[in-house]
Write a protein that binds this DNA or RNA. Sequence first.
DNA 1: GGATTCAGGACTAGAAAAGTCGTATATTTG
DNA 2: CAAATATACGACTTTTCTAGTCCTGAATCC
Lengths: 146, 146
Amino acid sequence: MAVQYIASCDGRVVSAKEIAEKYAISFEFVSKALQALMRRKFIASQQGATGGYIMLRDPKTLSVAEILEAVEGKQRLVECCGEGGAGACSMHGRCSIRTPLAIIQRRLDAVLQSMTVAQMAFPDENIEQYVVISQFTGSFETSFSN
Amino acid sequence: MAVQYIASCDGRVVSAKEIAEKYAISFEFVSKALQALMRRKFIASQQGATGGYIMLRDPKTLSVAEILEAVEGKQRLVECCGEGGAGACSMHGRCSIRTPLAIIQRRLDAVLQSMTVAQMAFPDENIEQYVVISQFTGSFETSFSN
DNA sequence: GGATTCAGGACTAGAAAAGTCGTATATTTG
DNA sequence: CAAATATACGACTTTTCTAGTCCTGAATCC
């Protein structure tokens, strides 16, 4: 929500306090998330009395996957379904479902990569792209509003 | 792994002890999961000295989504992205990303529904179906082996 | 210099998950 | 029938993760 809000402010410097008040969550909690996003260079911070945060990455190419990984770390179905995690698992050698799980993991990642900050912040401008992607799910959705 | 194994035994009654030994996990832990699957009628249990478990549902139509929901409960990105969960959330009224999150949730569910027990237990027999689905991810995978 | 803001480590509390234990019940076999 | 083997399931413990807080410090603006 914070990233979506910063993106929607389009160039304005937004303080963590403002975001915390808007969404009624604690200032410290928002700050922690924003600091993680800053470390990944998704947003830039400006210190001082009129400081705050501003978008650094283009919302059209910043995906939900990247935000989740920055804030919560890389989440996996099981520890071995990542890059070179074959030996990392305690079931190594006995597991018979590593390949199918890795395939599912790749598809899940693709889903999280398919939604961008721009689509969340400016839904009206992205209807065409949205319809194309939704063909996978089997259902055709034509509206996109909050 | 347990369901995949029972499915691969194709009609034979398989005991929890056998599964626990095969995968080197505790008997009680396997039992707990199998009991959850029994309650959902995915497998049937047979008590007594030669007892065990047997498939009840067709592996070709039993999805990973159903197994995960049975064993670990319905997992969601956030509590409100389910059926009629609109008011369930503490952010109700302030949240601005409910719709996009619900869309992502639906796509994630679709991924978990796209992999069946049969595809995990008998990979060689399901190559065609597998290729069709993977078109969504953008990558074309032609092999499927454990 | 004082007010405001970010930076970030340390800490706490609570929930969830993993895993265990004990007891009851059903079934087969000798 | 009795012993052996299996499931059924609630209760319990332990561990791990996450949400959220607290505090100190540094940068910037007025």
